[in-house]
Each structure stands twice: as C-alpha cells, then as structure tokens.
Design a protein around this nucleic acid. Structure first.
Lengths: 371, 371
DNA sequence: CGTACAGTTGAATCAAGCC
DNA sequence: TGGCTTGATTCAACTGTAC
C-alpha cells in the first residue's frame, strides 16, 4: 500500500504513510504544488479552565491535552500562520483546503486564510444531530462546528462534484449546512482502558462528504493533524491517496492499525454522477445533417413568443436576426445570453418539444456505440 | 416615545431615536458603560464582480451599494476595529454584543472581537429555510449566515434567559443553529417604485429571538447600522429601548415611519409570542384522553431504571413523586430537567417505544386536518 | 371563497475553452 | 492576458391572477 511517487521530477511523495514530527517541518520537506487537497483539524485553542460536571455529577472528559494549550491569541495566530503557509506551498495551483474549527479558533483561521490569498468558496456548518448539551444552562447548546472550504487562489479551477452532492441530497443542491451525527458507537476508537483514544475524533461521514465533493479518485489528500486517521481511513475507502502527519506516537499507532483494516470500495461504487458539461458536445448542425430537423422547418421559443427558421448550415433566421441557436434566442429576448438547446422547440405528432431532446438522442447513440 | 434618560449622572441617552452621521462618532458622543446590548449588522464587504443571471436570464439584484465597498482587507479591518472599539466603550460591564455576517467578513469580525477582549459566548448559525440557490452549480448553496454573541469581557454577568429560549424550543435547550426564513413578503419594506427599500433587511424573527434571549424589558439596545430599523421595531414590540444610528437619510426615513406604526405588545401577548412553537404543542394529557395510553398504564424510563403510572389527568406517579412527565423524570434522575417525551417509554406488542412516537402521530393528524 | 398555476425573488466573493 | 464563442444553471416562499 505504501508507495513513493515521483512528481514532475521533484522529490518523492510519501503516499499512504503517516509521518511523525512537526507538521510544518514535514510539509516543508515535501515538493511544492504536489497535493490536491489539504484537510486540517488543528487544535481548537479551547482554553478550558475548571472541570465540568454533568447534572449527575459525573465529570465531562474534556480536551485538556498539552497540544491544545496556547499562551495567547498571538501564539495561536503564529501557529496558524505557519502551518497554513506550509500547506499552501505544497498545494497544487488548482488545489483546495478544508479546515474545521469552533468559535474558539475558526475566526482566526478564516482571517488568516484570507490574508494568505486563499479564496474562500464556502463556509460549511456541521450541524451535530447529537451534540453535548449545555449543562449549566448559561449559553446555547453548542451544536455545530464550522468548516471553511477555500481554493489556493482566486483563479484556481477547484474540483467540485456538483451532481454527486446533489444526488447525496435527494436531487436538490447541497446546502452549506450539513446535518451529521458526532462520532460514537463502534466507529469511536477506544484505547486499552476503554477510554476514547482521541478526544476530537471526527465522523467518517464528514470526511466522506468532503472527499466525494471536492476530490477525484487518485487525488492526494494531506492531513497535517492526522490524529487517529479518519482522513486516511476514508481516503482508502474512496480510492484516494493520503499523506498523514501526526506528532504523537500513540495516535500514529492507533491510526496505522485502523487504516490497515479498511477495505477500498469496489470501483463501481466509487463512480459519482458526472456534471452535464462533461457530456460530449453536439453541434446543432448535426441535427440538420442527420435529418432530425429539415432546413426550412420552423422552431418556436419556449414561451411561444418567437419563431425562427432552420437553415441548411445549422443557423437560424428570425426577422432580421440570424446566427446560432443561442445568438438568435439571446437577440430576440434581449438577453445577454441564451441556452438555445432548451429555448427552441419543434413540433412532432402535435406536441411541442425542446430541441435538446434530439441532442439527448444523439448522445445516447454515442454512448451505446462510441465511434 | 422619544425620551432622554440620565445615566448615573452622566450625559443623557437619546432613547428611541435614530441618529444620523458616522456610527463611530455618534457612539463616542454617548456616555460610557450605558448600553445593555449592541446588535450590529455591518457591511459584509462582498466584493462582487460581474452581473449574475438566473437560468431564465433574469438579473439577480445583488448588493452593489457604495456602503459595501472597501478597498482591501486592511481597510475593512480598520473599519471593524474602530466601530467595535466604540461599541465596547458604551457597553455596560455586564453588556453583550451580537454581530452578524457571512464568510466574507465574519472571520475578521470574530478575530477582532477576541483581540479587543470581548468574550465569545456562542457563534450562532442562522439557517435560512429559503435561501437563494447557487445558479452556476459551482459551490454549495450558501444557506446560512453566522452570528456571534459575546460579552464585553470574560467576567461579565451577561443576560441569558435560558428558560424562555427553552420554551421557544419545545422544552429542550435552544441550540446554536436557528432555522428562520429570510425577510420576504409583507414584512419586506418596499420603496415607492416597489423595489426593496434596503438590500439586506433582516427578519424580525431573528431580532425577536436575540432580544428574548439576551435582554430584559427596559434594557437599552443600540444598533450602529440601523438600516430600515428592524432592531427598533422589535425592541418597541418587546418593550425594550433602542438607539439607532444610520448614515443614510433615506433609510432613516423608512425606519422612522416603520417604527411609528409598531405597537408594543401588551403583557399577555408578549407571553404568547414568547412561547410560539414551530410545531403544534401536544399536551401529554391528550394521549390519555384519546385512549392512546390508559390511565393506570405503567411507563418505564429509557434506561429501564424507573417506572411510573399514568393518571387520568395526564400526570405521572412514581413512588412519592408526582407531576408532569418532565417533572417526574427529572426528579427520579436527580437532574435539573428532563424531556419526558423521549424519556418515558410504553409497551406495544412486546416492543418498548418512547411516548414521543404517539405525539408524532398526533402531529401528523393535525397536519392532515388542521383543526 | 378556496385552489391552481404562473411569475418573481433572496447579502453571490458563481464558467470554460479557444485563439 | 483579453476578447469572443459556446452554452450551463435554481430552491423555497411568496404574489397575483384565473377559475
């Protein structure tokens, strides 16, 4: 499973491995412009003070690990600046980053992302379906965490599997608020004492959605705060390559064992719905060439207001306007643009049908018998 | 309605008025430590570029006003620093602030709040039930905005009406994600041409919840970006005092007219509006009346530890405790509160099921046949 | 007086490829 | 890098008119 891949003649990329040490140093040792996605779940800088007890007086096992202690906002900002800078260097120009945090740290991360030139695409709310209640009744139940999705730069052509996410959401656009349960039950890793192995283990469903949305199979996903390896486990399942960095030896061991057990899904189940743009392009003229529309035939607009005549070269004429199906539609509507395929209709057996139906027929044939 | 109130011998406070001019200057003219709550909806610094058209080629009426133009992040940060500093000076030591923003500006506001010594209590997600879709299918539908609730300092004894919020949320703790519709329909103020009077008018339901949660009647609420006066309208309804600051004369006029028309709720209707629930309330007694549960039937707790007997009047008895399903559950568990709907279970055909199932059945019926 | 249907709209950092 | 061509893309709620 472990592999070393050459990247454009640069130094090797340690795929599907968990590296020890400081994440900034490790990232700086990797070649620049080599990673497709960074997912980062850095320490939240919680600054908890006393112990917290539940109404039944049991103690809440809160995050009080040494790695979550920062002396000041300035120290946390330095830390954030350093690891984000290192992450940005190794990202491909069209790469993207996801960070997750709570109100303790996410505002500082978001501001620093913008300062460094990352381009924020969405902030996403992970709405926990089963959050910890607020035992003291002094605030609102803190029932969500915030993720930020940003491309390396404004001009990046980032990956977004729009149709796949739409499918995940019963056929309507995926929103920026995601309802997912926190990590519990069998998924929650325990140590030999039965205590949770890591205080902030993220659910695999969250990483699953992120990777389906913003990576393709074979992409390299780097996680600089690997913890118990949720990113690696999901990457392996989904046929992505991962690079993990984790300072704590104990976490590396847990993660290694965990990922070994994971099986990759079969290829078929990994295929996601493609965007319409990736479908083969069909010139309108082909409909005339094939005899699906006759030269001289009259098309009508979807709103019935206009009509235009088909010419032998695949252009339309209406009054004094002529040109492509898109140009003529736009001109008649006085609109800046127009999708002629869904705008123009023809008549068959008394019914009025958009010409896009004919394009779909051609595409179907192309799929059955490629060339 | 307009009044001037002396504050501990300091200069006067211009209550229930809309002041013109720059909000920093106006705030600096007010006495320090004099305001209970600041609500601020500052420009979001959207930096939009070209026009955006819908699939039907209609143009999206986006925010392109001069007041939302900043030359850089640095300029926006200066602006944020200045108005937050002025707001903090006039806040009482136990005062608090709410700010609202999107991913364009909220990270910068959140970081600056922390830098100035405000103590963040919650970040709250306003999940829009009817957001604008993403027309190009290039990102997630931006379906939420973020609010930050912070006290003036860590030591502040801020106001939080825990029980009122709990009532608003069907008897369970209010979470940090609020589902509310955007401002449309009759609530949306129009100008003489029928266009929206202000591009970013907030719904009154949002301000209603904020003021019920974090102010008491008679408190002074200041809004430095008053716009069309949603804060003032809701404050008047709820018996709070407001101070508005708005630079644009046109908005001040609209807001003045709007607030004149608002009538303060009488005490009784205040109670009603405070207990408004999104789903119809079903009293436990109705389950008994309807024969879904028999008097004398024994309910068991979710954890199997306790049992209680149903009485004809819709109360429970267990050992020496009697009362509502919530009270008895809380008493037995030694907990401050208990959601009896999910805590108590009954048996049907050998299975143990929470009584909430029965409530859901009733609600479903109510939806089918209102009344 | 309801119901059905067509039309409108909301804080948006919103295209991609070729020459 | 800029201009031109092609052509991809929408959900929920409210409003007004027709029936």
């Amino acid at each position: 499973m472990k592999t070393m891949t050459k990247v454009k003649g640069a130094s090797a990329l340690p795929l599907n491995q968990i590296m020890g040490g400081d994440c900034v140093e490790v990232m700086n040792s990797l070649p620049e412009n080599s990673v497709d996605l960074v997912f980062a779940d850095p320490p939240y800088n919680l600054q908890l003070k006393g112990d917290l007890h539940r109404p039944d007086n049991s103690k809440v096992d809160a995050v009080d690990d040494a790695w979550d202690q920062f002396s000041s906002f300035a120290a946390y900002d330095r830390f954030t600046r350093d690891w984000l800078k290192a992450a940005r260097r190794i990202l491909k120009p069209n790469g993207a980053i996801w960070v997750i945090g709570s109100y303790h740290n996410v505002f500082r991360m978001g501001a620093e992302l913008q300062n460094q030139g990352f381009w924020i695409l969405n902030d996403v709310v992970w709405r926990k379906s089963n959050p910890m209640p607020n035992f003291r009744g002094k605030r609102l139940t803190n029932a969500h965490e915030t993720l930020i999705w940003a491309s390396k730069q404004e001009a990046s052509k980032y990956t977004f599997n729009y149709e796949a996410l739409k499918s995940l959401n019963e056929g309507v656009q995926m929103r920026s608020d995601w309802v997912l349960p926190i990590c519990t039950g069998h998924e929650r890793l325990k140590d030999e004492n039965g205590d949770k192995a890591h205080p902030t283990q993220k659910p695999e469903s969250l990483l699953h959605r992120i990777m389906v949305a913003t990576t393709n199979p074979g992409d390299v996903v780097l996680d600089p705060f690997f913890g118990t390896g949720t990113t690696g486990a999901v990457a392996k399942k989904l046929g992505r390559e991962f690079i993990g960095i984790e300072r704590e030896e104990a976490y590396r061991q847990v993660a290694t064992k965990r990922i070994e057990k994971v099986r990759k899904f079969d290829k078929e189940s990994l295929v996601v719905s493609a965007s319409k743009r990736s479908e083969p392009r069909v010139p309108f003229g082909q409909l005339v060439e094939r005899g699906m529309l006759r030269p001289g035939e009259v098309l009508t607009s979807l709103n019935q207001r206009y009509s235009a005549k088909v010419r032998a070269d695949g252009t339309l004429v209406a009054n004094d306007v002529k040109g492509s199906i898109h140009q003529v539609g736009a001109a008649l509507e006085g609109a800046p643009s127009c999708n002629g395929w869904t705008y123009w209709c023809f008549k068959r057996e008394g019914k009025t049908v958009p010409i896009d139906l004919l394009r779909q027929q051609i595409r179907a044939e192309m799929t059955e018998r490629p060339n």
